[in-house]
């Protein structure tokens, strides 16, 4: 399951999509909106997405994780639009036979997402609006 959506993550639905009879575990990662960023107090956040490309990139990362770590299923749900402090931003779920490869694959997916998937955070602070930008090299 790969989704880019405004709505919150439906945990039950995602878990059902990830779990399988042959799997012994599901490792989950949630990214959430923090109330500070680089010393600034964050009041809220908005996330912009290049949706068509984001879905394409996430599907590629999912396929890489399945192939590289031999896990059973990978689900990613990333939100965009206006978010409040404490809201969910992203959910990653990985099912596998054993926890070792599930943790590794989950880590791989979030690390690659932060480098390659076209999403941008804008933080609203007491000092104004700030685009957050990563440090990807060409």
């Amino acid at each position: 399951m790969i989704r880019v959506q405004r709505e919150d993550v439906d945990m039950d639905a995602v878990l059902e999509a990830v779990k399988s009879m042959k799997s012994g575990c599901v490792v989950s990662f949630f990214g959430t909106v923090r109330d500070t960023s680089e010393g600034r107090s964050v009041q809220r956040m908005s996330i912009e997405v290049y949706e068509e490309m984001a879905v394409k990139q996430l599907s590629m990362i999912r396929d890489e994780a399945l192939e590289r770590f031999g896990v059973h299923e990978v689900a990613v749900v990333h939100r965009y639009g206006d978010l409040e402090v404490g809201n969910n931003i992203v959910y990653i779920g990985v099912s596998a036979g054993h926890r070792e490869e599930a943790f590794q694959a989950c880590r791989y997916v979030i690390d690659e997402l932060k480098e390659r998937v076209p999403l941008w955070k804008k933080e609203y602070t007491a000092d104004g609006e700030v685009w957050v930008e990563g440090d990807r090299r060409e």
């Binding site: 990214g31 984001a54 931003i89 076209p118 999403l119 955070k121």
Partner: peptide, 8 residues
């Protein structure tokens, strides 16, 4: 065209 991404 876009700046380095910052999702997650």
């Amino acid at each position: 065209f876009f700046p380095p991404v910052s999702g997650g």
